[in-house]
């Protein structure tokens, strides 16, 4: 029961949430003017910045050109100061490479790439502060940045992490919780069609638990969707009002 105690001190988690609660999400869409689209998201203490450039002409070699769809180019970096232990380099290590390909595959499935043949869409994600759920927060930030850039997508891509602790599914883990549980899943989905575009698991989990934890994570994704949707709608309403 030790693990539960770490989670439940007084019936609540260390940061005062109950198991199915997300951390506070605050974001700013269009944080930077120079990029075609940008978004900054704070999910608890995880702070992430995403910018989108494109669709634009392919940079570098012509050999990268895809004749039937757009090329999605992602760069995932974690600032050297983003974790409590200073990192040696911002990108190029295994963790960031892994997150990079995760991001790329997720958005290849979600962006309507067939509309932009022979062009390139750049998604740059920068983690400024990491406190658990980096992958899911990065995907949420990139989604908002893509929406800001006006890149056509099938739906919002919403991501959420979850873990099983003594028969209970817990949503949106902080760094401390990630260390304690050992095993964790991250799902990203297109909430309206209930399609899963990213599924990632670390550690090991009993098969009996997979359904439970997946349902919980997808519920979390839906919650994230409602938050992001309301932010985007209020932003657009604000812009429309400014235009008169």
């Amino acid at each position: 029961m030790a693990r539960t105690e770490a989670f439940f001190d007084t019936g609540l988690r260390a940061d005062g949430r109950d198991p199915s609660q997300l951390r506070k999400i605050s974001c700013k869409v269009g944080a930077f003017k120079q990029a075609d689209g940008s978004a900054y998201i704070e999910q608890g203490k995880t702070k992430i910045l995403a910018t989108v450039y494109g669709p634009q002409e392919i940079r570098g070699g012509k050999s990268k050109v895809l004749h039937d769809r757009a090329l999605i180019n992602c760069q995932f970096s974690m600032a050297v100061f983003c974790t409590s232990e200073r990192r040696n380099r911002p990108r190029g290590d295994r963790k960031t490479m892994e997150l990079n390909s995760m991001l790329q595959q997720t958005y290849e499935a979600a962006i309507r790439v067939e509309l932009f043949p022979r062009s390139q869409i750049d998604i740059f994600v920068e983690v400024l502060q990491a406190d658990g759920g980096v992958a899911s927060a990065a995907i949420n930030a990139a989604t908002l940045a893509l929406i800001d850039a006006g890149v056509p997508m099938k739906d919002y891509v919403c991501a959420c992490s979850a873990a099983m602790v003594d028969d209970f599914p817990f949503l949106d883990l902080s760094h401390l919780e990630e260390i304690v549980v050992g095993s964790m899943v991250t799902f990203a989905c297109l909430p309206r069609s209930k399609q899963i575009v990213l599924s990632e698991m670390s550690g090991r989990l009993h098969l009996d638990y997979l359904d439970k934890v997946m349902d919980a994570a997808l519920k979390g994704c839906e919650d994230v969707f409602h938050i992001m949707d309301s932010i985007v709608r209020s932003q657009v309403a604000h812009m429309a009002a400014a235009m008169g």
């Binding site: 120079q34 450039y53 760069q75 970096s77 740059f124």
Partner: peptide, 11 residues
């Protein structure tokens, strides 16, 4: 670190 956020040239 010149982040790629600042300019795609920094990617």
């Amino acid at each position: 670190d010149c982040s790629a956020n600042a300019s795609p040239q920094f990617a």
